[in-house]
């Protein structure tokens, strides 16, 4: 069976599906964009895909809390299918609004194993939307993040990205995939390095199995070195995250 099918899931108000699909295709995936409605009508279709991405945007306007409505749809209609997806060793990525959806549906981080929401992403301390580039410390012990340098730069653009949790320190160090840091590389609680006030400077986490990654920064917005926010030439890190997934599927699935 052909393994390199990826899926970008779109809900009303999702708005990063095109560029996310673009980067997936360029990395080598055969990507499809399906709406939540199309998937609910044909749940079996999910089995075709080795990699599922929830892209950024404002699903259903985020009017009742970011990602709430889609996470409720997941709980009521799709949970079993996603459970099987993960059991089969396949991967899921949530970016920005996708991260919010994964967290609120209980898929991420699911440390208790009972698929309940354990952490949250709430309004930024500034209470408004903010777009800026941030420096991140990378936890390279995940499928998604290996081969990345210790520190990377990516843009964030969100109004509800303050990560809150009640895990002990060791646990969050392990789950944390990206952390906001200052210029010197130290984890930061200061604005604007930590743009939203996230606990323990967390910008992204993986689940217990390491198969699901959720992150506030947008890797798909750093696909070309010229997109960097100043003139220095550095590798477009965004691509590496998607390449890691491709390589994992190639070697492990």
């Amino acid at each position: 069976m052909y393994k390199f099918y990826s899926l970008v899931i779109k809900a009303d108000g999702t708005n990063c599906e095109v560029e996310t699909s673009f980067i997936l295709k360029n990395v080598g995936f055969k990507n499809e964009i399906l709406t939540v409605g199309e998937i609910i009508k044909d749940l079996k279709i999910l089995e075709k895909f080795s990699f599922i991405v929830f892209p950024g945007g404002f699903s259903y306007g985020d009017y009742t809390g970011s990602g709430r409505i889609v996470s409720s749809i997941i709980k009521h209609h799709l949970l079993q299918n996603f459970q099987k997806h993960i059991k089969d060793g396949k991967l899921i990525l949530g970016i920005c609004n996708g991260f919010q959806i994964l967290v609120k549906s209980g898929l991420l981080p699911n440390t208790s194993g009972n698929w309940q929401q354990e952490v949250s992403l709430i309004f930024n301390d500034s209470f408004h939307y903010e777009d800026r580039w941030v420096k991140l410390l990378v936890n390279k012990n995940t499928i998604f993040t290996k081969n990345l340098p210790d520190y990377i730069y990516l843009p964030v653009a969100h109004g509800e990205g303050k990560f809150i949790h009640s895990f002990v320190k060791e646990k969050i160090e392990k789950l944390g995939a990206f952390f906001y840091v200052d210029e010197k590389g130290k984890k930061s609680m200061d604005y604007p390095q930590n743009p939203n006030g996230s606990f323990d400077s967390v910008a992204g986490i993986v689940d217990e199995t390491g198969k699901i990654l959720g992150m506030m920064p947008h890797p798909e917005r750093f696909r070309d070195e010229k997109e960097f926010y100043h003139d220095e030439k550095i590798d477009p890190y965004g691509i590496i995250i998607f390449e890691n997934v491709y390589r994992y599927i190639k070697e492990e699935l």
């Binding site: 708005n15 990063c16 095109v18 560029e19 673009f22 980067i23 950024g56 408004h128 939307y129 903010e130 777009d131 800026r132 843009p155 653009a157 947008h218 798909e220 917005r221 696909r223 070309d224 010229k226 997109e227 926010y229 100043h230 220095e232």
Partner: peptide
Amino acid sequence: RQYDHEVQSQTLVKPLGGK
């Protein structure tokens, strides 16, 4: 900063620049 000036991943030069 309150505007998303990078969605669609096509913004090469952003409104604010430099290190």
